[in-house]
């Protein structure tokens, strides 16, 4: 997908509005990227982009991607929290672009928790 001008961006917006009005507005989960000073300096922007890119590649649009501030886990930034359905939230640390794509492919798609980069389970 290449967005070259404002018209194309507006078209994406219209499509998104249509989806919002339909049943698709119900999300089955969320992925939260920590975007505080600590996260940004550790590369959270690239993490966010990798997550969005991989989710688009996998045609996932029923999981919300949300940015948050500092969650108090500055030492393991970039951090990503994944919560699918009623499951307990899972927080991953040191999430670079490669790990971000793995989180989407393994956790968001298949429901497998990635133990080696797991920092915490449950709400902060």
């Amino acid at each position: 997908m290449k967005i070259k001008n404002l018209e194309e961006l507006q078209r994406i917006k219209e499509e998104s509005l249509k989806n919002l009005n339909g049943r698709e507005s119900k999300k089955r989960g969320r992925v939260v990227v920590g975007m505080g000073t600590c996260g940004i300096s550790a590369g959270a922007k690239d993490t966010l982009r990798a997550i969005v890119d991989e989710m688009e590649k996998q045609s996932i649009d029923d999981v919300a991607v949300i940015q948050s501030g500092c969650m108090g886990l500055c030492e393991v930034e970039p951090t990503v929290e994944v919560q699918i359905g009623d499951e307990e939230p899972v927080i991953y640390g040191h999430v670079n672009e490669k790990q971000a794509r793995r989180i989407v492919k393994e956790h968001v798609v298949k429901g497998n928790v990635l133990r080696e980069i797991l920092v915490k389970r449950g709400k902060i």
């Binding site: 997908m1 290449k2 967005i3 001008n5 404002l6 194309e8 961006l9 994406i12 917006k13 499509e15 998104s16 509005l17 989806n19 919002l20 507005s25 999300k27 969320r30 966010l48 982009r49 997550i51 969005v52 890119d53 989710m55 688009e56 996932i60 649009d61 999981v63 919300a64 991607v65 949300i66």
Partner: peptide, 16 residues
């Protein structure tokens, strides 16, 4: 009004 949590919308804005 667009859904700013939608991966495809965020991706489109990055591309823009």
């Amino acid at each position: 009004g667009a859904d700013l949590t939608s991966p495809s919308v965020i991706k489109a804005i990055f591309e823009y």
